[in-house]
Design a protein around this nucleic acid. Structure first.
Lengths: 113, 113
DNA sequence: ATAAATTATTTTAATATTATAATATAAATA
DNA sequence: TATTTATATTATAATATTAAAATAATTTAT
């Protein structure tokens, strides 16, 4: 039941799941950007940026419009940014946990010495 | 800068980006579950469920504890569920947009006939 | 029309992911 | 101890993703 939706979720997540594509999206957090700006900002090959933008386009994550030679992209839905923010929060929690575990270990060693 | 964090984000997203793993996580939304329950619920091969759980374990997305023969899993951080909810909301928006576009097309055809 | 600038597409080789099948491990029980 | 039950691991073949290179397409300017 709702298998189609689950598959779509997986596809969207897969589209997000690449360092370069995450960098592109974070670069679009402040608003529209042309491909040339993204290329400059990320220091990635033009054709590679284009390929990654194609992945984001295919999943309807970004919009684009042409302005002369330039092509200007933007993120279509705020949820994308919210997901990236949640990931920050998740990673912070994970790091905090590891710090706590490490603290516990140190205490144990101190006691048993 | 912060390249390590971006790569970690990508890895977590990749771990989420599979239909079976999404189903596992949604099955864990109500709380802990043993592997056997997950297998029953999802109708997926045991070894395959185990492999997918290993992916989630590796990225610190789930916790597990043993109880006799059973192994009981749970999702570690609420952010995971929040991400899945945001995906629902995103997909709803996408569908609504397509409906609107379709409506516009229909109106155009009606006028020009 | 030609050239230059910007972006997109295609091809390819390397690498990663996947499901399935077979095997292994570990705990409970007979 | 042998068997059964629940879960994990490993091997493998099929498929997908990736970056890089080459090429194409489109718009502007000369």
């Amino acid at each position: 039941m709702f298998d189609k939706i689950i598959r779509t979720k997986a596809e969207i997540l897969k589209a997000l799941a690449h360092p370069t594509r995450i960098k592109i999206l974070e670069s679009l957090r402040v608003g529209e950007r042309c491909v040339c700006e993204i290329i400059d900002e990320l220091n990635v090959e033009q054709s590679n940026v284009s390929q990654h933008l194609a992945v984001l386009k295919k999943l309807d994550i970004v919009n684009f419009r042409k302005d002369g030679l330039r092509v200007i992209y933007e993120v279509k839905h705020k949820e994308i940014f919210e997901i990236l923010i949640l990931l920050d929060s998740l990673i912070s929690s994970q790091i905090e946990e590891n710090v706590a575990i490490l603290g516990g270990l140190k205490q144990k060693r101190a006691k048993s010495s």
